[in-house]
Nucleic acid binder design. Sequence first.
DNA 1: TTTTGTTTCGTGCTCGCACACGCAAATATA
DNA 2: TATATTTGCGTGTGCGAGCACGAAACAAAA
Lengths: 346, 346
Amino acid sequence: MITINDIAKEAGVSAGTVDRVLHNRGGVSKKTAEKINAIIKKRNFKTNKIASSLALNKKLKIATLIPRHDEENTFWKAPLLGTQNAQENVEKFGITINNFSFDQFDATSYIDAFDALIASNPDGVIIAPIFTKETTQITKTLENKNIPYLFINVDLEGFNNLSFIGQDAFKGGFLAGKLMHLCFKENCSVLIIHTRLNAENHYAISERIHGFNDYFINNRISINSTIANIIDLKNTKQLKEKLNKILSDNPSINGIYVPSSRISTIANCIPSITSKKLALIGFDSTDQNIECLTEDKVSFLISQKPFDQGYKSVIIMSDYLIEKKVPEQKIYSPIEILTKENINFN
Amino acid sequence: MITINDIAKEAGVSAGTVDRVLHNRGGVSKKTAEKINAIIKKRNFKTNKIASSLALNKKLKIATLIPRHDEENTFWKAPLLGTQNAQENVEKFGITINNFSFDQFDATSYIDAFDALIASNPDGVIIAPIFTKETTQITKTLENKNIPYLFINVDLEGFNNLSFIGQDAFKGGFLAGKLMHLCFKENCSVLIIHTRLNAENHYAISERIHGFNDYFINNRISINSTIANIIDLKNTKQLKEKLNKILSDNPSINGIYVPSSRISTIANCIPSITSKKLALIGFDSTDQNIECLTEDKVSFLISQKPFDQGYKSVIIMSDYLIEKKVPEQKIYSPIEILTKENINFN
DNA sequence: TTTTGTTTCGTGCTCGCACACGCAAATATA
DNA sequence: TATATTTGCGTGTGCGAGCACGAAACAAAA
């Protein structure tokens, strides 16, 4: 491994000077600076992060602002685990992660969590920007304090976020269309179910629907689709009735497409005899969804590897904080097809 | 953060003594050792890995023994890249990776490569044990020299390998069966093509076929299958003729299943008009296979994330060498479904 | 020429730990 | 009691980089 001293020796200067050049801290003549830079490039020198973080001996803090998970909404468990897992890999560089969570259906809690977050004086922030308006406010504060932030999972446009880490929702929907088509060939008659409350998250949902429809349009396949809006997912009885009514009113329906992570809720409200003839396709590998997959209630899940999203976001932020490595603007997660036969290995 | 000096001060000894206790290097009286241990426990002291690895500054060498890749056989490119990529992440801990490659169809070259490998005095070895008999010999040498080794991609049983990193071939085949079934429902008539020369690799291939058939048996679906043995994949003309003959002799065939990584070779030998009516399912995301997927010649690929296999094997070996972290006996790669619509994100 | 002011750099200490060296006290041997 | 040997520990140096302090080198002003 090539060190700062090797560079210094080759340039005929001291390590201190090389260091000044590396951090362009000034006080170096143009000539020697150029000479040193040339050697650094030639030798492909990279500072040793270990030694660096030892010397700096500073504690960098990364804070995350993501929704809470509970028994009903489990999606956000995976990204959280991802960040925690990543912590093990970055703590050697003196980085600690603090998680601040909020209620994904309550914008006030988002702000409150952010206030707590900012009070902790983080050096970098990872946000799931569920609420557009409030995010504008939040990011303004961050920018004033010069704290870098990146978005995870929700791709809000028009912000100065370091990066976005998540899925291309349109392409996810497109793939869902392909899978649905595969299930029924030319006779697709699909029920599309809206399930979300918070309108802000609408973007991903509508892109998923858009992509789904586009698959059929692009491939000139005719499809029969019905759209249902279901707001209250907690009222199981009412949900069952509503679904039953739709399905008996439209006996031709053979597929159900749920462009959110809540397909299990729907699946569990359909009598098993009926579900046998239906293909259910949804998103995200939550525990409940996986259970439905295993029990053959759901045919396919499209996963966005939420664990990896959390993991990556921490790694990317660390790299940025430690070595100013600027990431890609958009880092797309793979669009993973999950089905009964491959679920155990994912 | 609590340091070795804090412990020393509290115990009324020097840092050197604490260090001796930490590495039970001896030369410390029982009494003081106990006292120090008590304080370490009480204060929950953990050595600072950063400082530790800086101080150790030791050079560990990991060697890999995997097949060469060329224009025709590209599968092994990805694991190689994976190991190289992992190197960037472990070199800060003083670890270097050396790759030794061999001809996957020539057992002698396997031995030769191993001889070169052992001459390089590695501290840990990653092997793709393509040849069973020779692997017995190789591992004996490694065990005599007390060099840990792990298997990648090929799951040979009965060895003292630290771990196996790769796919469950049976499950991969099972999933292939599901996908084939999905393409044709109850009217599957499949041509299964053997393509490998080296019999040793037979295990994975036969498991994939076994799993494929099992899907249909388990689900009580009737299937019509024809098996073709094709040895010489280089003779395109002959291959085309052979395939044409089989397909015209068996007009009912609507699916082709290639349980190796060579489906692109087959796909490119089938006239485009014919291929439109066929579903081709194969394994591994080699460049050629991906191209076939994009061009609609192949319907599905099942990938075992070979890049990740290479990457992980290095990380696991490093963790073992540096901190004696013993890995799981079997580390299965995800069984990934690749199709035209999600290939860009993988 | 001397003084003062600027650049431009070298030096040396620090971070927490590993490990070799060697000294002193404790114990054994003559 | 004198000497040899062992045991128990303290000390010092190095790992690679960050950074403060201040010393040369040079230029400009007195």
